[in-house]
C-alpha cells in the first residue's frame, strides 16, 4: 500500500522537522550539539591535528609552561600536553559511548522484560535494580576492577555493567503504559509473537526517552572514566586519558599548573556538551513542554 508508506514518511519527516525546529530554537541545545560535534571531529582527526606524537618523550623539554612551541606546555616526560589532550579525546569519547551502549542494551532488555511480562518477573527484576542502586557505583566498579586488568576494554565493560539501572526503569515504565494500548492489541490479534510486539511495536515508541537517557549517560560515563583513571585504576599510562593526565597534574601541583588546568577543562566542556544536548533533546521531545 504505497499511499500509506508515503503518508508515514511524510508524518515522520514532519516530526523530525518539528524536533529540529524545537532544538534549534534552544540556544543551549545548539551549543551542546556544536560541542559534541566538534569533539567527535577532533577525536577522529587526532593524527592530523596533534602537533606532536603524544607518546614522544623529550627529556630536554620537561615541565615547560605553555609556549608557542608547546601551546599547553609539556609534562614531566617532556610530552606535548596539547597532543595528549587531543588523543585523550578519543579515549574519553570511546569509553563514554561504548559503556553507555552496553548499559542501554542491558537496561532496555531487562526493562522490556519487566514491563512486558509484569507480575513476578517485573518484581524480581525491579528488586534487583533496587539492590544494585544501593551500591555506590564507584565502590562497585572498584571492587570488580581489583580483579581485572585495567584495560580500556574492561573499563568500558565495567562502567556499562554498573550503569544500566536508569534505562531499565525508564523502559519498564514506557512498556507498562504502552502495553495496554490498542495498537498492541491489534498486533496481538493479527498473530504477532511476543518478541515481535515488544521489539517492533512497543520499543520504537520508547525511543525518545531512551535517546535522552543515553545522551545524558555519556556525560556521566566520561566523568566516571576520568575519575577512575585519575585514581590510577582506569586507563593506564602511557595511553593518554584526561583522567590520568590529571594525576600528573596532582603530582606536580606546586610547579606546573597547566597540567591540572587543561585536561579538567576538557572533561568539563565535554560533559557539559552532552548534558546540554541531552536536556535540549528532552525539552524538544517532551510533549508536556512542547505545548
Amino acid at each position: 500500500m504505497p499511499w500509506q508508506t508515503r503518508e508515514f514518511v511524510q508524518a515522520f519527516r514532519l516530526r523530525i522537522e518539528g524536533l529540529r525546529n524545537r532544538l534549534t530554537n534552544n540556544p543551549l541545545a545548539v551549543a551542546g550539539f556544536l560541542i559534541v560535534g566538534l569533539l567527535c571531529l577532533v577525536a577522529l582527526s587526532a593524527p592530523w591535528l596533534a602537533p606532536y606524537d603524544p607518546q614522544a618523550i623529550d627529556t630536554w623539554h620537561i615541565l615547560e609552561s605553555p609556549s608557542r612551541a608547546h601551546l599547553l606546555g609539556t609534562d614531566p616526560l617532556g610530552r606535548d600536553c596539547l597532543s595528549r589532550l587531543i588523543y585523550g579525546a578519543r579515549i574519553s569519547l570511546l569509553v563514554g559511548i561504548v559503556a553507555v551502549g552496553i548499559a542501554t542494551v542491558i537496561g532496555t532488555i531487562l526493562g522490556a522484560l519487566a514491563g512486558f511480562y509484569g507480575k513476578w518477573i517485573d518484581g524480581l527484576i525491579m528488586r534487583f535494580v533496587d539492590i544494585i542502586l544501593c551500591f555506590p557505583t564507584i565502590f562497585l566498579i572498584m571492587a570488580v576492577i581489583a580483579f581485572l586488568e585495567p584495560s580500556i576494554l574492561n573499563i568500558m565493560a565495567v562502567i556499562g555493567f554498573t550503569s544500566w539501572m536508569g534505562v531499565a526503569r525508564l523502559v519498564r515504565a514506557e512498556f507498562l503504559s504502552l502495553r495496554q494500548r490498542d495498537f498492541v492489541l491489534a498486533a496481538r490479534i493479527s498473530g504477532a509473537s511476543n518478541a515481535r510486539i515488544a521489539f517492533s511495536h512497543i520499543l520504537p515508541n520508547a525511543v525518545a526517552p531512551i535517546l535522552v537517557a543515553t545522551t545524558l549517560g555519556v556525560g556521566g560515563a566520561i566523568l566516571t572514566e576520568s575519575a577512575l583513571s585519575f585514581l590510577g585504576i582506569g586507563v593506564q599510562p602511557p595511553t593518554p586519558s584526561w583522567g590520568n593526565m590529571l594525576t600528573e597534574g596532582k603530582d606536580n601541583l606546586e610547579i606546573a599548573w597547566w597540567l591540572s588546568m587543561f585536561p579538567g577543562l576538557a572533561i568539563l566542556v565535554t560533559v557539559l556538551g552532552y548534558n546540554l544536548l541531552g536536556e535540549g533533546l528532552r525539552d524538544a521531545l517532551d510533549p508536556k513542554i512542547r505545548d
Partner: peptide, 9 residues
C-alpha cells in the same frame, strides 16, 4: 559537569 577531583585540584 565539572569533575569533582579537578575542582579539588
Amino acid at each position: 559537569a565539572a569533575p569533582a577531583f579537578w575542582v579539588a585540584l
